[in-house]
Design a protein around this nucleic acid. Structure first.
Length: 577
RNA sequence: GCGCCCGUAGCUCAAUGGAUAGAGCAACGGCCUUCUAAGCCGUUGGUUGCAGGUUCGAUUCCUGCCGGGCGUGCCA
């Protein structure tokens, strides 16, 4: 509808230019939805925007444009208002056609034509060193909804989780698991402050003990050796090295046990949350395939790295970053950044034209160096779009809750799902736009989950289903909705509902383009509101057949769009509540 | 210090540079013998942090302050 109007206006302007009645190089007419009800269904500010270039007053320009517009079945009338807005009132039959299209296309309604290119969406990618917490939940809900939204809007999109299974954090997990394993078999252990202290570590350790008995035991005194010359991090590295030496090949057993346990937990958690991935991409696999070495080799060849202080540095400052960044440490180990360079290069080589990464906002300083690396490797850094998700600040009992994986003091996503349910959790998360700081009141979310707006939307869907149940209970045959004469719909609530339904396509388009699934959530609340208002104002079943059938057709269209929109958010559309 | 994000009703949040800045919750008043009251209708509530600038028009863009968050590792 919006697109058709934009085309109509553009053609008219082009014709006026060709006729010499308007100068060339005018801005394209933009079609907007007025906020105010009296301002029509659509409006354009073209006359205001083009007045200066045309050397005419906005009102005169508006008159000219209005006069030049040919007849269109879409338009009932056009008014010129305010400083020179053209307000378009859409003809009712055009709205009825939208309702018929929804009834025809059902769950496919809202899908936009395929677009060129291939998009890779990477999200969550939390280190498998602990369960997902409510912060990850926000990235999961946002990323999954965005993927569904992009797919609906015609983008070819794949979802990927980057598994950081190669780094130091995983070694710390391995050490932590081993220490809990030793404790479980009765050894005295002073558990280090810098280890992972969460209860889940002990659970993994018990599994390890069941599988391996006492075969992984080594003297604690060989591992946890105090050294006042080393700081906490260095001491941890030292203990990890001692554990690797003491366990030999068995170290991989401990490491792998922790990794697999956590990864299985994360996969299970996300799947239960309705979040699906096309691929779990292993950092270790990347390293072992030589991709990291190849990427570094290319950077060497292009003179984008240099050695200093025994380390290898990427010249990030050449590409807009604040300073150069280490890719290979003094001790010979590649940094996380080095893997990430290789990973993003691989993404390009795998043929994706658009890369979207969803990161926690605490990684924002990381964006320039990754884009810089892509530029250094000859790729267009603009192919990569990094979307930052701000922290969800947790409040519990009016107090800010600490969120630390290491201390184990955090609320897990699994706990949240159990308390408030998947639907409420997903809707709540996606109701805030991602870059907005978010206050997550756990007590409110848990104890008063009925206040969650998701039920408002779901209830609208269930109410329509209920009407049809009632229809059958009264022994009436469901009519052929496609045959209903929608021309009998005259109530203001009916027009309001039709108008809202007609917006859905544009909302999908805009939300996808802006990467903002929250627009879908807000739209659904509006649509539910229009349905509820209609429901309260009119009876659907106790009226004469032609009007009844038209009303049933309209509310069925609303139900379909509610269901389709909820599906984009990964939220269920219940038939009864 | 520097960089990024944010600041809108009592609270949580919306608003492609557009016309009278909107919802939900909270507060107050109405609506169930009739399709689910997890609903509807109405009222109250604002110097869009502050000060400038850009233009026909600024919550939106620019500059400077103020306040909050995050970052500023040879951690990830």
């Amino acid at each position: 509808m919006k697109r058709a109007l934009a085309t109509l206006f553009q053609d008219t302007v082009t014709a006026l230019v060709a006729a010499g009645r308007l100068p060339p190089d005018l801005p394209a007419p933009e079609i907007a939805r007025p906020r105010q009800g009296g301002h029509g269904d659509f409006a354009t500010n073209f006359a205001l925007a083009a007045a200066k270039a045309a050397g005419r007053s906005p009102r005169a320009l508006a008159e000219e444009l209005k006069g030049a517009l040919g007849a269109s079945p879409l338009i009932d009338r056009i008014e010129i208002a305010g400083p020179g807005f053209l307000n378009v009132f859409v003809a009712r039959p055009a709205f009825h056609e939208v309702v018929r299209a929804i009834l025809r296309e059902k769950e496919a309604y809202g899908r936009l034509p395929a677009r060129p290119g291939k998009t890779l969406l990477e999200f969550v990618s939390a280190n498998p060193n602990g369960p997902l917490h409510v912060g990850h939940g926000r990235g999961a809900a946002y990323g999954d909804s965005l993927a569904r939204l992009l797919a609906c809007a015609g983008y070819a999109v794949e979802r990927e989780y980057y598994v950081n299974d190669a780094g130091r954090q995983m070694d710390i997990l391995a050490l932590s698991v081993w220490l809990r394993y030793m404790q479980a078999s009765g050894h005295e252990v002073v558990f280090p402050e810098t280890g992972y202290r969460g209860a889940y570590v002990a659970d993994i350790a018990q599994g390890l003990a069941r599988a391996w008995g006492d075969r992984l035991e080594r003297p604690i005194s060989d591992i946890l050796i105090a050294n006042p010359d080393l700081d906490a991090d260095a001491l941890m590295d030292n203990w990890i090295a001692r554990l690797k030496e003491a366990l030999g090949r068995q170290y991989e057993t401990v490491h792998g046990f922790g990794l697999n346990a956590m990864l299985a937990d994360i996969k299970d958690d996300l799947a239960a949350f309705g979040v699906q991935y096309d691929r779990w991409y292993s950092e270790r696999g990347l390293v072992e395939s030589g991709a990291v070495d190849r990427a570094l080799q290319r950077l060497r060849a292009s003179n984008d790295v240099y050695e200093k202080d025994g380390a290898l540095w990427f010249r990030a400052s050449r590409y807009g970053d604040e300073k150069d960044r280490v890719v290979v440490r003094e001790n010979g180990a590649a940094t996380y950044f080095a893997s990430d360079i290789a990973y993003h290069l691989e993404k390009c080589e795998r043929g994706y034209t658009d890369l979207i990464d969803i990161w926690g906002a605490d990684h924002h300083g990381y964006v320039p160096r990754v884009k810089g690396a892509l530029a250094a490797l000859g790729e267009d850094p603009n192919r990569l779009q990094v979307l930052l998700v701000q922290f969800a600040i947790l409040y519990r009992g009016g107090q800010r809750a600490q969120m630390s994986t290491r201390s184990g003091d955090f609320v897990t996503l699994r706990e949240l799902r159990a308390e408030v349910g998947n639907d409420a959790a997903r809707f709540f998360y996606v109701l805030r736009k991602s870059e907005q700081h978010m206050d997550f009141d756990l007590d409110l979310a848990k104890s008063q989950s009925n206040d969650n707006p998701v039920y408002y939307v779901q209830y609208a869907h269930a109410r329509v289903c209920s009407v049809f149940r009632q229809l059958r209970e009264r022994g009436l045959t469901p009519p052929d909705l496609a045959q209903a004469d929608l021309g009998v719909l005259n109530a203001p609530e009916e027009h309001a509902l039709e108008r809202t339904l007609a917006r859905y396509i544009d909302v999908v388009d805009e939300a996808a383009g802006a990467r903002e699934p929250h627009q879908i959530a807000y739209y659904l609340r509006e649509l539910a509101g229009a349905l509820h208002a209609y429901y309260n104002a009119h009876a659907f079943l106790g009226v004469e057949a032609p009007l009844r059938d038209a009303r049933l057709a309209l509310i069925t269209a609303a139900r379909v769009v509610l269901a389709n929109g909820l599906a984009l958010l990964g939220v269920s559309a219940p038939e009864a509540m």
